[in-house]
């Protein structure tokens, strides 16, 4: 089990590093798909099967496709140098490394109240009941948010026919 985790974690991290370092943006998007898939396998290890499947459908099926479409719609992004860094990249790298060191120190020193309990057998039906029971208001707000965001996206990206 630890070996499987280490392999999947290493795969995910390598894919994530590829996402932020690839010069070609299209390659970066493909690395991003790999990272999403790695995170889905981590969910399987954590026994959250519903989330793993949602991750693959929503992230790989929808968001990654959207990103690839956006890259292909703007031709200059397909160029070789499109994935370059801005002039702050050294400071960004130092900041990210410092944040990682701080988080690693906190995460390894703080004791968490871990319990050894099995996941309920009807976890997926409990999620469904929760979404229409105690969490029905956030659920409806999320659906309104999605509708508003998608209509807004269509309105923003729509081609305006020379209306002044």
């Amino acid at each position: 089990m630890p070996m499987i985790f280490l392999f999947l974690a290493l795969l995910t991290v390598v894919m994530a590093i590829g996402t932020v370092t690839a010069r070609n943006l299209f390659h970066a998007a493909l690395f991003l798909v790999g990272a999403f898939f790695g995170v889905a396998t981590i969910y399987v290890l954590l026994e959250a099967e519903f989330l793993a499947v949602s991750q693959i459908i929503i992230y790989i099926g929808a968001i990654a496709t959207l990103i690839v479409f956006a890259i292909m719609l703007s031709r200059s992004m397909m160029g070789r140098e499109a994935g370059g860094y801005n002039r702050f990249w050294v400071a960004a790298a130092v900041g990210a490394a410092a944040l990682l060191a701080l988080l690693a120190w906190v995460l390894t020193t703080v004791p968490f109240p871990v319990v050894d309990q099995p996941v309920p057998a009807d976890a997926i039906s409990q999620i469904g009941a929760g979404l229409v029971g105690p969490y029905v208001i956030p659920f409806e707000v999320a659906s309104v948010l999605l509708v508003v965001a998608l209509i807004g996206a269509v309105m923003i990206a729509r081609e305006r026919h020379r209306q002044r």
Binding site: A16, A35, A82, G83, A91, A92, A97, L99
Partner: peptide, 15 residues
Amino acid sequence: TLFCIGFFGVLSRRN
């Protein structure tokens, strides 16, 4: 680790 890699990507990319 993933968070910090993404953080670096947000801050450093030109595109």
